[in-house]
Each structure stands twice: as C-alpha cells, then as structure tokens.
Write a protein that binds this DNA or RNA. Structure first.
Lengths: 206, 206
DNA sequence: CCTACCGATCGGTAGG
DNA sequence: CCTACCGATCGGTAGG
C-alpha cells in the first residue's frame, strides 16, 4: 500500500517535471533551460530532479520523446496515404513554429548526441530509424495508391523527407519567415504521379 | 619595413593555426578539439591563439569559412548547369564523408549559433543566404536550359536543396552507411524535366 | 528528496 | 601606442 502510493507519487512527480520541462524549454530554449531553472519551476531541488532523471541530457531526451509521442495527434486517421502524410506533416511543422524552443532543443540534441556514449544517443538513433520507417511506409502506400510516381523508391524518399524536415527546421531557426509547410508541400508535389497516368510512364526512355 | 614583416608574420601564424585547426577538427571532431589541443598542435599558447582569434567560437567560424572557400573547388567550371550542380554536390558530400569531424563541427555550430549574440551567428546566417542563393541560381539556370521542370520554383527548390544536404549530413553522422550522394542525386532527379518535353507540360490539368 | 558543497574542466583574461 | 606572444590563474558553470 505504502510502496504503491510512493511509486505512484514518484511517477506523478516525474510526469510533472516532464510537463514543466516541456513548457520551460519551449519558452526559453535549451540554453535558458538549466537544471536549476527547471527544478525551481517544478518545485523541486536540482538534486531531486536528478533523482528522477539520470542527467540533464536524459531529461532532454525524455522531453523530446514526450514531444514525439504527442506529435502523432497531427496525423489524420482516414483518407488517401498521400493526403494523410501531407496534411499531417504540414500541421506538425506549423505547430512547431509555435514552440521554437523545442525545435531548438531537437536540433541541438541531434547535433550533440552522435557519440555512442552520449546520454541521448539511443533516443536520437532510434528516432531516426523509427521516423524514417514511418515516412517510407507512408510513401510506399501512396505509391501503391497511384498518387506518387511508381518509380519512386520509398526508402530513399523517406530518408530525404526526414532529412529535409530536419534541415528546414534548422534553417527556420535562422529565418523565421521561412514557410516550412509550403516547402514541404513542394517536395511532396515533386514526387506526384503524372496526371492521367494510371500506369506510370516515368523512366521510359527512347 | 619592420612593421610589415610583423604583420606578415601575424597573418602567416593565423593561417598556420587555421590549417592546424582544420586538421585537428577533421580528425578529432569539435568535442576533441579544445583550444589547448589546437594551440599545442600549432606550437602556440592558448593565449597566443586567442590573440589571433577572438574566441573559440570565432576560431570555429573561421575554420568553417575556410572550408566553405575550399569547397568551391568541387564545382565543375563547364557544362550544363544541372550536370555541374549534380557533379559538384555529389563530389562535395563524398569528400565530406572523409572529414567527419568537420561535418560534426558544421552541424553543431549551425545548431548553436542561432542566437544573434553568438560569435558564429553572423557566419551561419550569412552562409545560409549565400548558399541558398547559389543553389537557387544554379537551379534557375538548369530550368532555363530545359533540364529541370519549367514549373520548378528555383527559390523554393534551392532552400529545399540546402535543407536536404544539411539534414542528410546530420543523418549520416548517425548512420555512416547512408549514401548521401545517391540520395542527393535522387532529389535532383525528381525535379528533372519530363523526357522529350521541350515545352514543359507539368502543371497542365484536365 | 534537501542543503551544502566538491572535483574537474574550460574558455577567456590580467600582468609583464 | 602597436603587435605578438607566454606563464599563471581566475571566474563561472555544470554535473553530480
């Protein structure tokens, strides 16, 4: 009973810290979000925070993972695969423009966690695999439905899509007037199947 | 005379430090390239190094600027614009795969210098403007030569190209088996004008 | 889970 | 008043 209550309390506190961290980072960015700052906002000591998360980098990884989990809500459940992908991704990047601090955190963690010994390395590496697979799957479905060119390689295009989204976010942090959604739509448009071509004619040479 | 010799000596030492820093960073990456490490390799004290460059971040910006200047050598001087662009960029990313530390530095500086007060901010911001303009210019030329779709917006595609290259480099740092050149070629291929279409038919709707 | 604090590192600087 | 340094060390930070 007591143990249960303590576990529940611990998990609740961890969740509370996570929500506070999401808010603080989204507002102040990773540079403004020190362990002391987040701890104070969550009504806990820096040491107490370190009890729930092993290190600052692990806290940041948890923040990004929570954001990843939340971002699935932008994906429409029904409709053609290409429409779902386009609408979902544009809604996502439009939302990202409202939480610049989180975008900044994402870009910085990706840039720093490439060493296998980095606390956020596993998160970043696994995220790449997962997101690339999701993009490639959606693109393959759109090809099967005839909305994307039949000769499009879903694996290659999936990697390009992820790379482009990452790069656009970095670019946007330097130029807030950049319309990430419009650029993303333009990319997807360039993979569209030619109009009135049920059987793809691409790749046919003379 | 004496003054001249001293100026020349200072410039020469600065250049020597820059070359040493390029080598050290390319090998050890930005995390392994401390001021003390670079200074030692250049046979100078940390303070002496700081005399030539205002700060570590300015040194890193100078390293990246030197690399940018050097990277123009991969661009072919003659030929159709699309071929020059494709060959130049693929040669560049293939070379990048040999200096992973510099790629890492590039990604990290871009991720950290978004604040206007950062020592490398001006470098990063201006680089984006310059590189985007160069890409857009090359793409516009390729459109004019009929090798890319007539309805392609060179500004949008230029931004996409830069974003994709940045994103691919970040991805490659996590997955060295990623073929950046092949992915880049695939992107450019998707913008190709339809075969046998002197007057572009894209955008024509029924 | 807190107060109090350390051990280490590193960028940058003051004096000469 | 300038350039080109060096030996020594400080101030601030951050994780823990």
């Amino acid at each position: 009973m007591t143990g249960r209550r303590q576990y529940a309390k611990g998990a609740a506190k961890r969740e509370e810290i996570l929500q506070v961290a999401l808010e603080v980072v989204g507002r102040a960015g990773p540079s403004g979000a020190t362990v002391r700052e987040i701890a104070a906002a969550a009504d806990i000591s820096p040491t107490g925070l370190m009890h729930h998360f092993g290190s600052k980098d692990e806290l940041f990884a948890a923040v990004l993972a929570a954001r990843d989990a939340d971002s699935t809500r932008f994906m429409p459940a029904a409709g053609p695969a290409l429409d779902r992908l386009t609408d979902g991704l544009t809604a996502l990047v439009r939302h990202n423009a409202d939480v610049a601090g989180l975008v900044e955190l994402y870009v910085q963690v990706l840039a720093e966690a490439m060493g296998v010994d980095h606390a956020a390395h596993a998160y970043a590496a696994e995220r790449y695999v997962r997101v690339r697979a999701a993009m490639s799957g959606a693109l393959a479905a759109a090809v099967a439905e005839g909305d994307l060119r039949a000769d499009l390689d879903p694996d290659v295009a999936g990697a390009l899509l992820v790379a482009t989204m990452d790069g656009l976010q970095n670019m946007w942090l330097y130029d807030r007037s950049l319309d990430m959604a419009a650029h993303l739509e333009s990319l997807l448009l360039s993979w569209r199947a030619p109009v009135g071509a049920d059987v793809a004619s691409a790749g046919v040479d003379t």
